[in-house]
């Protein structure tokens, strides 16, 4: 019986230790790995004097977005009427919003680009990411803020960069991170696993020649003279590319067109 008592004590101790081990909440997003904007002389951005602009057109009737059910969180439910559907496809006057437009090849080799030090911010407000789609430079600080009176977790489903998943339990909480490696084809999805409708996309670039289409579908890139492959990417309709040649101080009007027949690769 005495042996049994000792054994029982040991078992209880093991259970207690198992329950108590580990732990702690991470206050900061994990550090980045690798990256940098390459070697070579720093590119002179004053040479980027040509303008490539245009509109991302959507042909036909845009497909309806998925309805959002926010009743799982009373705070989010208060804002449900403002966001009845997902932000996947936003078309205004034939222009498609939230398309990442970037130079995918043709940039000069052997140069580096001045690091972007100005932090970008993505806010979780009214149970939505603002902005929904954005671009950032490698190693540029990204602040993730929770403006809501509810909990969010920010989960980056990165493939080339380290994934992370951090909770933000308190309103006003801000975490900062950086992505060390370019990741834009496709961009990194950001998700909140608490509120499954919350999603955003961030395209990470080593170079500064990228932008996101505005609500009316327009975009503008400043480029140095040269011949480039320019890509437009949308979360539902995938990507399209075109070749663009610009000379000094050129102003070139180009456009991309998407339709319901286009589909993003899985």
């Amino acid at each position: 019986m005495h042996k049994r008592t000792i054994l029982l004590g040991a078992l209880l101790l093991a259970v207690a230790l198992a329950g108590a081990c580990g732990g702690g909440n991470d206050d900061d997003l994990p550090p980045v790995e690798g990256g940098g904007s390459g070697g070579g002389p720093t590119f002179d951005m004053s040479k980027a004097n040509a303008t490539v602009s245009g509109k991302i057109a959507f042909e036909g009737t845009p497909p309806p977005n998925d309805k959002i059910q926010m009743s799982a969180d009373p705070f989010c439910q208060m804002h449900a009427s403002s966001y009845p559907v997902a932000e996947t496809v936003k078309v205004n006057n034939g222009g498609l919003e939230n398309v990442i437009v970037y130079v995918s090849s043709g940039l000069p080799t052997g140069v580096s680009y001045a690091p972007a030090t100005q932090p970008l911010e993505v806010d979780q407000m009214n149970c939505h990411y603002i902005p929904h789609v954005f671009t950032i430079r490698t190693n540029q600080p990204l602040k993730v803020k929770n403006s809501d009176m509810t909990l969010h977790n920010i989960h980056a489903y990165a493939e080339k960069n380290p994934q992370f998943n951090v909770g933000q339990a308190v309103q006003g909480m801000v975490n900062e991170t950086k992505f060390g490696l370019p990741e834009n084809a496709p961009p990194i999805p950001l998700r909140c696993d608490v509120h499954r409708w919350m999603g955003a996309f961030v395209g990470v670039f080593e170079h500064p020649f990228h932008t996101v289409s505005k609500p009316d579908g327009t975009f503008e890139l400043k480029l140095p003279p040269g011949t480039y492959e320019v890509t437009a990417w949308h979360e539902k309709f995938g990507k399209k590319t075109m070749m663009v040649e610009v000379k000094d101080n050129d102003k070139k009007d180009v456009g991309f067109s998407f339709s319901v027949a286009d589909k993003a690769a899985d």
Binding site: N25, G167, D193
Partner: peptide, 16 residues
Amino acid sequence: STESGLAVPDWPTTYG
């Protein structure tokens, strides 16, 4: 089924 496996990102604590 609800894809909630990472809704609590820390363990054994819950949001601290």
